[in-house]
Design a protein around this nucleic acid. Structure first.
Lengths: 209, 209
DNA sequence: TTGACAAAATAACAAGCGTTATTTATAATA
DNA sequence: TATTATAAATAACGCTTGTTATTTTGTCAA
């Protein structure tokens, strides 16, 4: 290589990421990146063979930013940290969150659910106060708790992302997550289960499919 | 009008809706609709002045299909019916659900939350068993209960829609909704609140923004 | 039957996209 | 300094989009 490339791959990726942040994935195109770099589209294609390939690199980058949010220790609860990081990422990086989890439905998957489980079993010992509390539950109960928590977290993140939530402060978000987690936990250890009785699913005329 | 239009507006809307069902909103274009109708693009523009206008009509149509799902009496619980209808719509009409709630974030809004509240206060009297149970709560507690339930429902609908849920049967969905509702209810009437103590939000280095 | 009118079909425009052929410019080498 | 290799710029191709002239077609009224 006689003449080193003026435009490095990180530069290109950074410009593309900036575009996603500003206008979402639909705002990203070879020409738009080039314009932001002050160059033509050629340097892009010398680092990446197609826009599709760049999209995957961009997803990887966005995922790592997301994981940064989830890695921070906001509280002493590892699970709560995962959830809080997820929701605040959805709030602070609206277009990145949409890019990762809303635009292509395949992405959501069970990735985060398994992540939550792993985190839980990795970080919770019987010696930690939370650990002892949660270890009282059956294995299946724990699975259920994490599942419920994850569903709630995902829903909250969506609503916060779309601006449907009046108050998006850290405190409010944390409160919602804590309340829900607590509710699921208490329900899980069996207190007052079957307190509300609901009849079996009714087969309405023109009802269930 | 000497020559009545061969292609009626309902026909055009139906063709467009079929396209959304098959390929999502991105599969809808003037030419695609025309192809499905076996016509040119002209009849479309004689009923609607732009594709954007047709999109809004299409949203209205999709919303009414959604409301049909929510109107059915699957159980005796009005709130549960709303939630169950929402989730099963997300499961059965994947592209319509995405079109309404995932593609344009503005759509989600508080519409469903207020819908839940209205339904609750309209259908629940002190004489119904559920009513008496729920009326024990404070007004603010009810608000919270509905909010929590709505967040959970929204999250479940998303996950079911994206196929992240292993089992999407009516029974499984109903169980999840009932369990969550029960958990929130029990938490709401105050049993064991503060059972889990979480410290105040920590200000990590490089932490909260 | 002929003229008129409107609906539908055809064809075209401009814009945007991914991608690539061609040209230009620049820097290292002989 | 002249040559050569190559990164970057320019320009273009082919495609799809929304939208709109233009042309064709068919039906009613005179």
């Amino acid at each position: 290589m006689i003449q080193p490339s003026v435009y490095s791959f990180p530069q290109i990726l950074a410009a593309a990421l900036e575009l996603v942040r500003e206008k979402g994935w639909e705002g990203v195109s070879a020409r738009a990146i080039a314009k932001k770099l002050g160059s033509s589209t050629m340097p892009i294609y010398s680092h990446v063979s197609s826009i599709e390939e760049l999209e995957e690199e961009l997803r990887e980058k966005a995922r790592s930013l997301m994981k940064e949010y989830q890695r921070r220790r906001y509280t002493e609860h590892p699970l709560l940290n995962l959830a809080f990081g997820y929701v605040t990422f959805a709030r602070d990086e609206k277009n990145l969150f949409r890019f990762l989890y809303l635009e292509k439905p395949a992405e959501v998957k069970t990735e985060h659910l398994t992540g939550m489980k792993e985190t839980f079993f990795a970080d919770f010992g019987e010696d930690s106060p939370q650990g002892t509390a949660l270890m009282k539950m059956q294995e299946s109960g724990l699975e259920e708790l994490i599942q419920h928590t994850w569903i709630f977290t995902h829903g909250l993140a969506m609503l916060v992302n779309s601006g449907s939530f009046g108050c998006n402060s850290n405190e409010t978000i944390l409160n919602f997550l804590m309340n829900a987690g607590e509710a699921f936990y208490l329900w899980g250890i069996g207190e007052g289960r079957d307190a509300l009785q609901v009849e079996d699913l009714q087969e309405e005329p023109g009802g269930l499919i």
